[in-house]
Computed example of a mutant assay.
Amino acid sequence: MMTADQRAHRSARIRQELADEGLTVPVGALGDLLVDELVSARYVEVHEGIRPTYGALIMDGLPADHAVKVPYPEATANDIRALADGVLTFVSRDISEPESLAIVALPMQDEVDAISVAMSTQGVIVQRHDAGTITVIYSEEIWVNEIFTWRRRPVARQRAIEVKRTLSLPSGALFALVVDLLEFAVHQLSPEGIGTTLVIPINLDHVSSTDGFSDVGVPPPFELRATSSTDLHLLRTFLRVVDGACIFTIEGVVERTQVKLDASSRAQTTVSPEGGDEALIGQMVLLRPPRVRGDCRKRRRAR
């Protein structure tokens, strides 16, 4: 069990690590709670050689529509932490209350689920995952810790505005599709180390041609829609075992998979054959999951 002196020293160490990487801990009580929970997440008690998953919700008041607090008046903070798996159960940290156990309404299996809660509550979510990766999820960014190295990642919805402005996309169904697939790429494919290219046609005349494709691929074995969370889960599973790009219709239906895109002349001179595809900006929106660093999860080379 961690002593008070150990917790204090480890808190100071984590604060310094974050400062070294330019990650700013909030000033005041919420920042203190965040660092305290990062210590708990990093130094989870080992049982039979395994450090279990862990999670904490840090906010000034936990909305009842997101989680239910379970009273354990006789339980210690360590007792409560032992029950927090970071998916369905979390340690609830509030400025004005001691630690308590919270059961969330929506299990946080994916980053996008945790981001949704962070955005709607303006709270902070700390999660320790199976492989030991620790994430700190804010409404506008994500901090990731792998093997004592910290880095910052974007939240897809924040970047969607930049995509909209850069490509002059109108508001409406097309932009909503871009947001859905950007979240899918950044918050579901990237953490799993799944490499692919998601293609949304802007120039609809291009869809019926094979210009820009060195291999037109094949239709999916069944209909999959970007608007369905179940379908996106199936697509994520499918993309673990195939290469190539996915072509979507303007309605968000997967039209073809395992498509090989022609490389532009610029890509041929600047990108190695193993570096991926580059093509057709202006005719299509190309979305890729960011490459994952570290060895926290199985990675596949982006095609």
Rank of each mutant, 00 (worst) to 15 (best):
A160G: 04
T76M: 00
R297M: 07
V259D: 00
G282Q: 09
V124E: 04
S116H: 14
I147M: 11
G275S: 07
V179F: 05
L224W: 09
V39E: 02
P107N: 06
D110M: 11
T230F: 12
I14W: 06
D215R: 12
L280T: 00
F175L: 15
G217H: 05
S229M: 10
A302N: 07
V155C: 07
G55W: 01
E37R: 12
G61M: 09
E141M: 13
Q283F: 05
I115P: 08
F148D: 14
K260R: 12
L101S: 04
P191T: 09
A267S: 12
L169I: 12
D231G: 06
S11P: 07
G31D: 04
L18I: 11
S272M: 08
I103A: 04
A267M: 06
Y138W: 15
I147L: 12
R93D: 04
T121Y: 04
D60C: 03
R93K: 14
F90T: 04
P26G: 09
V253T: 14
T227V: 13
D5Y: 10
A41N: 03
E140R: 08
A160I: 05
S139P: 01
L181N: 09
D113L: 02
S139Y: 05
T135G: 03
D65Q: 13
D85I: 09
S11G: 15
V117A: 09
V292G: 00
I161H: 10
R240N: 07
V207K: 01
V144W: 01
